[in-house]
Design a protein around this nucleic acid. Structure first.
Lengths: 195, 195
DNA sequence: TGTACATCAGTGAACGCGCGTTCACTGATGTAC
DNA sequence: TGTACATCAGTGAACGCGCGTTCACTGATGTAC
């Protein structure tokens, strides 16, 4: 089956998404080019049309996938954390920040880009699910809604400031030093955690 | 002096910055075009070169100006707030968020774009000054450094989530309803404020 | 099992566009003497 | 005060480039009979 990998192969959609992710990681969201993504995938530059319509469609699908992985990153941390609700919440926060630091360009695509189509149902549902996922965990430690929103904001704020390089003092830290410092920031500010 | 406004006029630099700000507000950072900025200013598209070198230079200068105005926005709120350190800090937080909501594209240019040159001394100094300005206020209420960082993160997090449209429940609020809700988020989460 | 046909996912040439940048130029201004 | 000259901030034509998109096409696959 010599053509399986190059012709009608079932994985082109996934391959294009992976290549688009590499593209934004290397070039940044602002220099994204659909033609380069096709080139990376080893396919003609009009091939993506059949799967995503246009460049915006591909970036929309990629952003939606990002929100799913944002949840996964939280779950990975939670799996190795203690069972108490507060430890699960802190783990989720660290997982959220892990995702941002490991996928800065994708994080920007999800939160700070106009290129994905926010009216796309798949994207808005993935985005809403990620938001609800975190908020639910915050409510499970006994927070009021405003507290839960604030916990989300502080987690997102730390993530965004680290991605944009505005918390200078963490840039030379090891991962575990950084985790410790982030936990200190949470613990010293969020009374619900210390109850 | 018939030529003052069109030729050798001292204000072209400022006019280009203003036009660039309008440009990103209308088109978004990702669709910025130097040629359109020149057109808005009523000047040939090669004129900006004399003032900013290239498009990157103009966006770098605009981002630096943004950080200065981020401080001004905090000071405007502080001027109408009570004199106690905690009230001044809350006012600064609201001012930070005012700026983000009133200048969403500029906020993105400052925090989530690769286009400005982060090695530019004017930009990095303006950015550092804005960071220090907020942190100093947070320390003045008696925070430890980790607390101050967390207060900054929650303010920045709320600002960024509002700009990106991820805190859905605030989008239909009036400004004063929103202020009230934001203050609740701060007050219910930051123990230092209630001491 | 064989044939006809529709569908689907690719190809690659071609398109027009706006972009940033370059370049020779020009006219106003400032300065030296 | 007048003249010569350097500098500066603009103009506008021209450049090459990569972009997204379109389009006619082709070959593989699936299905009906």
């Amino acid at each position: 089956m010599p053509h399986v990998d190059t012709y009608h192969h079932a994985h082109l959609r996934a391959a294009l998404l992976a290549a688009a992710e590499t593209e934004i990681a290397e070039k940044g969201v602002e220099d994204f080019s659909l033609r380069r993504v096709a080139k990376r995938t080893g396919v003609s530059h009009s091939a993506p049309k059949h799967h995503f319509g246009d460049a915006r469609g591909l970036l929309t699908a990629l952003a939606a996938k990002g929100f799913q992985r944002l949840i996964s990153a939280q779950n990975e941390r939670k799996a190795i954390a203690g069972p108490k609700a507060v430890d699960q919440l802190l783990a989720a926060g660290l997982g959220y920040i892990d995702f941002a630091l490991q996928n800065p360009a994708l994080f920007r695509l999800m939160f700070a880009s106009d290129r994905p189509n926010k009216d796309d149902p798949e994207l808005s549902s993935a985005c809403g699910a990620a938001y609800q996922h975190f908020i639910t965990q915050a409510l499970e430690v006994g927070s009021e809604p405003d507290q839960a929103t604030g916990i989300y904001a502080i987690v997102h704020g730390v993530a965004d400031l680290l991605v944009s390089g505005r918390i200078i003092t963490m840039q030379s830290m090891t991962a575990s030093e950084r985790d410790f410092r982030i936990l200190q920031i949470f613990i010293k500010n969020l009374p619900i955690i210390n109850q």
